[in-house]
Design a protein around this nucleic acid. Sequence first.
DNA 1: ACCGATCAGGCAAGGGCTTTCCCGGCGGCG
DNA 2: CGCCGCCGGGAAAGCCCTTGCCTGATCGGT
Lengths: 335, 335
Amino acid sequence: MATLADVARRAGVSPATASRVINGSSKPVADELRERVLKAVAELRYVPNAHAQLLARPQRSVVGVLVHDVSDPYFAEVTRGLQRVATERGRLVIICNSYRDPDREVEYVDLLRAQQVAAIVLAGSGYHDPTVNALLDERLAAYAATGGRVAVIGRHRHRGDAVLPANEEGARLLGAELRRLGHRTVGVLAGPRSLTTTSDRIAGLGAGLGEPLPEARIRYADFTRDGGSRAAAELLDATPGLTAIVALNDSMAVGALNLLRARGVRVPAQVSVVGFDDMPIAADVTPALTTVRLPLAELGARAMTLALEPAAGRDRVESLPAELVRRDSLGPAPA
Amino acid sequence: MATLADVARRAGVSPATASRVINGSSKPVADELRERVLKAVAELRYVPNAHAQLLARPQRSVVGVLVHDVSDPYFAEVTRGLQRVATERGRLVIICNSYRDPDREVEYVDLLRAQQVAAIVLAGSGYHDPTVNALLDERLAAYAATGGRVAVIGRHRHRGDAVLPANEEGARLLGAELRRLGHRTVGVLAGPRSLTTTSDRIAGLGAGLGEPLPEARIRYADFTRDGGSRAAAELLDATPGLTAIVALNDSMAVGALNLLRARGVRVPAQVSVVGFDDMPIAADVTPALTTVRLPLAELGARAMTLALEPAAGRDRVESLPAELVRRDSLGPAPA
DNA sequence: ACCGATCAGGCAAGGGCTTTCCCGGCGGCG
DNA sequence: CGCCGCCGGGAAAGCCCTTGCCTGATCGGT
């Protein structure tokens, strides 16, 4: 690997001069020397060692992003927004997947700290477990204390600027719509109990329906298609007179749709199904999914924007609205 | 930010000893000193500066991954495989999105080089443009020349170990199946012309059908749902007697399906539709999509494995098979 | 009781880059 | 004609960490 010294030697100048040419220092360099340096750079295919640079000039230009799983469409979309802003601002992004393991999350925070990243963006639902939260908080605090910037998406209870999707409000909208259409016996396909997203959405749904949801009508499973399918089967078997199934994300809703089709249940004539998040797939299944749109990319973009701004006096909190998207999978309750 | 010197001072030892305690050197340290150091580390929330570490001990532990766009399900899946192996091996992954811009790709290679990454994995279709390829190749060569490892996924014409999806073979399978079912007037929804993936799949398809595809039956567009929808509309309008549409990826196929539904064309009774890649969505649309499964996560996993192994004498090439997945969207050609 | 072997700990040399400070040479001004 | 100020270039310190080498001390053997 060619070093700056190699370049300088080849160009017949000092490393100082070479450095100044290469990263356009304010200090002027004679044209001839500049030429010679650039020539040497090209010939040696020199690329400065980023670690050495960062050590010498602690100008932090990379941002760490911590998500549950990039290949999940939810995070893919959030990440898209994050990346867009980061790219506009000339920042490199390191993406880490915690795979929903809180311990791994803490590890990654330390790892990003070690990388001297300019900011850490934490995306995705938080956990209920107070031990976990305390541990994570402590690490984030240590990071923030040394000037690191922290932004969180959809996690109310952490330090740092926060961007919140209107989980509760969106679910309320959904609940109100179900009620308007006469649904009284509603079942819920919920994500893992440990996630705050799950409980927020359940709470909002109850509020919209006008009555709290009996625990017996909630089935907890993974936020996946298969999770949705299994949970829907259980719910159906256990609940006579069920007229609507609310899946707490679209993947689960798609799983439910598949199960109902396999069982020959007509949607929405016999049972309505609604989802959450408005992933691209929601529009493409049959019947097209009624769901709640969350501006995911926008969420990411806002979070990155906050993360790249200097810290405000106190933690900022922004909330982005949810919107009901009416499609075909929700109809009036059968008589 | 606390430094090693701070820790050492607080523990009343030399930085050397502190360092040895912290990263478990083989050199023994007395229990009492070790305790003191660990205590200081905890109290100061010390995390070693990764850049300084990398400078001092050039043990390269991060791997760069360059994809077109992580939020595209194709790359999401490939990335999942890459990450799995990287995590198993204790490597950190930096993901960069080129957004299909070849220039940005070159930039990112340099950036990863600057980061002293242990390996670079290039995923996604290559380009036809020889200028672009030459530039990229030159940069990769410079990297490889200094001991960097390079692995590419689905790009035949680059240096470095390669893992290739059976694009051509998969398309051939598809073509043969269409032919068997009596389809003679087949249209193609192709991705961008500049990508080798597009041409490989077209070539395979022609081979399977038993006759080369007339250019008039190919429509080039983006590898997206909307691209597929638009291209399908054009194709349908321009081709009387069309009995089957081959989309060169599943997103385009879904777009086509939507368009056909909107126009009241029955699938597969009137027109068959097939996709490519077997994305998760393929099973969830109606009718479920007949498509070609590419082991995408496996592709990523193999590429990462190769990248993390020491270089072989010459570039290795592995090919992973494609498999025809029969679902409902392909039927016999109408009489 | 002495010598050599063994062991734990510290010193200091990098690793590649940036940047401050300094120096020599030039031009302009008095 | 002499001095000052300015300007372009280089020497060197420092960023934070690891590790080879050395030293002082302890211990065992004779």
